[in-house]
Simulated assay, not measured.
Amino acid sequence: MVEHQLRRRGIADAQILDAFRTVPREAFVDEDQRHLAYGDHPLPIAAGQTISQPYIVALMIQAAGIGPGDRVLEVGAGSGYAAAVIAQIARDVVAIERQPALAESGRERLSRLGYPNIEIVEGDGTLGWPQAAPFDAILAAASGRHVPPPLIAQLAPGGRIVMPIGAAGDAQELVRGVMQPDGTLRLHRLAEVRFVPLIGAEGWDER
């Protein structure tokens, strides 16, 4: 997976590659999906959600420029896989999940596997987690209508946010935003992607 899906597609950061080698992706999917765990595609998990394909997770981490001293917010914890990879690099990770069952199973899994620098919290990810802000990087694993203003407000100076924009079923774009000294967010387009919708007060309505 690391050599063929990541390195050969432009993921060059040694810390990211080592993190993917370390985290057992099969431990974050259902038992009947484990034989597919290292394919370059998303996989279904509980509550109608997905675990993102490894390349996209790596691309988002690389675009966010996450370093060893960083505090990171992940919006959409899901099974906890991306948070586990990020936690191999960052100082600490707060992963917010709106589905109670996923949040609880994620906490149990990460505790069992030994990730003490990850906190999974339950809430509306579009509002972020202000009690732990500011964040050096924010990654959202669901596609929103726009970059939510509460997330922008929780970025540290020079902070980065990486998330997809667009409706489910439509063309979505992965974007990278960097907080400027004047408090504005400068956006760059990265790639066309396909994610589940970001549900919440600053996202899409739940249907």
Rank of each mutant, 00 (worst) to 15 (best):
Ala156Asn: 04
Val178Ser: 02
Glu192Arg: 15
Ser105Ala: 13
Pro42Met: 07
Leu190Ala: 08
Leu174Lys: 00
Phe195Cys: 06
Glu97Cys: 05
Tyr81Asp: 06
Gly125Glu: 06
Gly65Asp: 12
Arg160Gln: 08
Leu73Tyr: 05
Ala137Thr: 10
Pro197Trp: 04
Glu31Tyr: 02
Val2Trp: 04
Val29Asp: 08
Glu31Ala: 15
Arg98Met: 10
Val85Ser: 09
Glu206Thr: 14
Ala83Leu: 11
Ala132Asn: 10
Ala103Val: 13
Pro100Lys: 08
Leu198Tyr: 05
Ala12Glu: 13
Thr126Val: 11
Asp13Leu: 09
His146Glu: 14
Gly169Asn: 09
Ala83Met: 13
Gly203Thr: 06
Leu187Asn: 01
Ser79Arg: 03
Pro54Glu: 00
Ala64Phe: 11
Gln53Tyr: 11
Glu173Asn: 09
Val85Gly: 09
Val175Leu: 07
Leu6Gly: 03
Gly48Ser: 12
Val2His: 06
Arg186Tyr: 00
Ile120Pro: 08
Ala87Thr: 05
Ile89Trp: 05
Ile56Gln: 09
Leu127Phe: 07
Leu198Gln: 10
Arg145Phe: 01
Glu104Leu: 12
Asp92Gln: 15
Leu43Arg: 07
Gly125Ile: 11
Ser52Ile: 12
Glu202Tyr: 12
Arg194Phe: 08
Met163Cys: 07
Leu174Thr: 03
Ala156Tyr: 01
Arg186Ile: 04
Ala103Pro: 04
Leu102Asp: 03
Thr50Ile: 14
Thr184Ala: 11
Pro150Asn: 09
Leu102Ile: 14
Ala14Leu: 11
Val2Ile: 15
Gln33Thr: 05
Pro157Ser: 12
Arg98Phe: 02
Arg7Pro: 02
Glu122Gln: 15
Leu185Asn: 04
Val85Gln: 07
Ala103Gln: 10
Arg7Asn: 03
Glu3Gln: 14
Ala19Cys: 06
Ile138Lys: 02
Asp136Val: 05
Met179Trp: 00
Val178Ala: 06
Pro54Trp: 08
Ser105Gln: 14
Gly177Arg: 01
Ser79Thr: 15
Gly200Arg: 12
Gln154Asn: 07
Val57Phe: 11
Gly177Met: 02
Ile45Pro: 08
Val85Asn: 06
Ile120Arg: 04
Trp204Gln: 13
Leu59Asn: 06
Ala58Phe: 11
Ala167Lys: 15
Arg145Glu: 04
Glu202Leu: 05
Tyr115Lys: 14
Arg34Cys: 06
Ala168Ser: 11
Gln154Thr: 06
Ala14Trp: 00
Ala64Lys: 14
Ile16Ser: 05
Pro68Phe: 13
Thr22Glu: 09
Ala142Arg: 02
Met179Tyr: 00
Gln154Pro: 01
His4Thr: 14
Val72Tyr: 04
Glu122Met: 13
Trp204Thr: 08
Val93Phe: 07
Gly10Thr: 12
Glu104His: 08
Leu6Cys: 10
Gln172Lys: 03
Gly159Arg: 01
Gly76His: 07
Met60Gln: 14
Val162Gln: 00
Leu139Ser: 03
Pro24Lys: 01
Glu192Leu: 09
Thr22Trp: 02
Leu43Lys: 05
Ala191Thr: 12
His4Ala: 15
Ser79Trp: 11
Gln154Cys: 04
Ala168Met: 13
Ile51Phe: 02
Gly69Glu: 15
Gly158Pro: 09
Ala156Pro: 01
Pro197Asn: 08
Val193Leu: 01
Ala132Cys: 07
